[in-house]
């Protein structure tokens, strides 16, 4: 089924680029002796810059191993599962993790977008914002775009982002007794943070909607806050 993606990699917001100029710690000042103990210095990996010193806008090689990510996410779920009661609670916690990723993702995406630092741009209308989620956010996090954006037929304030094969849950088999659980709650959290950051408060949830040929198809359901809908209406 998926033997060819051993080398699969997810892109993330970090740069693995290393400069030939090593960070040289200041050697002139002797360490303070006696008196108060100073804060323990952060250990530095030899030969590489501290992650905070690396350039932010380099996206080349900014990828992590899919396997490493998968094991980490698996541990996150196991850790969370031990500390919650019920599936709703678990999804909420995963959403919170995602929210923390999402706020940082938005900041970086704006910084990295074309001409970002000189010509920052912020979408203010609903459809372009949804398109940003579908294309830019998905590309930045998963290395591909989402498969569709749909508008709910029943409710005006509901939109859906659809991914036929979300990479982050590819290796997860949900046991039968937890069939309502969708581990894409993490993604929902990321989307919620992004929408919040762009001024479109919404409630975002993830649902598995398998379809013929796409057993892992997932829908990210966005229910926009009334304030966002009213503003959108006023701007028309």
């Amino acid at each position: 089924m998926s033997y060819n993606n051993v080398q699969a990699r997810l892109s993330v917001f970090s740069t693995a680029s290393q400069s030939s100029l090593d960070y040289i710690p200041s050697v002139g000042t002797p360490p303070p002796s006696g008196g108060r103990q100073s804060i323990t210095p952060i250990p530095k990996a030899s030969g590489s810059k501290n992650i905070y010193d690396r350039p932010l806008n380099k996206t080349r090689n900014a990828e992590v191993s899919m396997a490493a990510y998968t094991f980490l996410f698996s541990e996150v779920i196991q850790y969370t599962q031990k500390r919650v009661h019920g599936i709703g609670d678990l999804e909420k916690r995963l959403g919170l993790f995602g929210y923390r990723i999402g706020t940082r993702a938005l900041e970086l995406m704006v910084w990295r977008s074309e001409g970002g630092s000189k010509n920052p741009k912020r979408e203010t209308r609903l459809l372009p914002v949804l398109y940003v989620v579908h294309t830019q956010l998905w590309k930045a996090i998963f290395g591909k775009t989402a498969d569709a954006i749909e508008k709910s037929v029943e409710n005006d304030d509901e939109y859906m982002i659809i991914d036929n094969d979300p990479p982050i849950t590819r290796y997860i088999s949900i046991p039968k007794e937890m069939s309502q659980l969708s581990c894409s709650a993490l993604t929902a959290g990321i989307v919620e943070a992004l929408l919040d950051g762009l001024g479109f408060p919404a409630r975002v949830t993830a649902h598995s909607v398998p379809k013929e040929g796409f057993p892992f198809r997932t829908t990210i359901l966005i229910k926009l806050d009334r304030s966002a809908m009213e503003r959108e209406e006023a701007l028309k």
Binding site: A67, S74, Q81, Y171, I172, S173, P175, M178
Partner: peptide, 10 residues
């Protein structure tokens, strides 16, 4: 390795 060890519910 993929389907069992990476599955958090195992």
């Amino acid at each position: 390795a993929d389907g069992v060890m990476k599955n958090p519910f195992h």
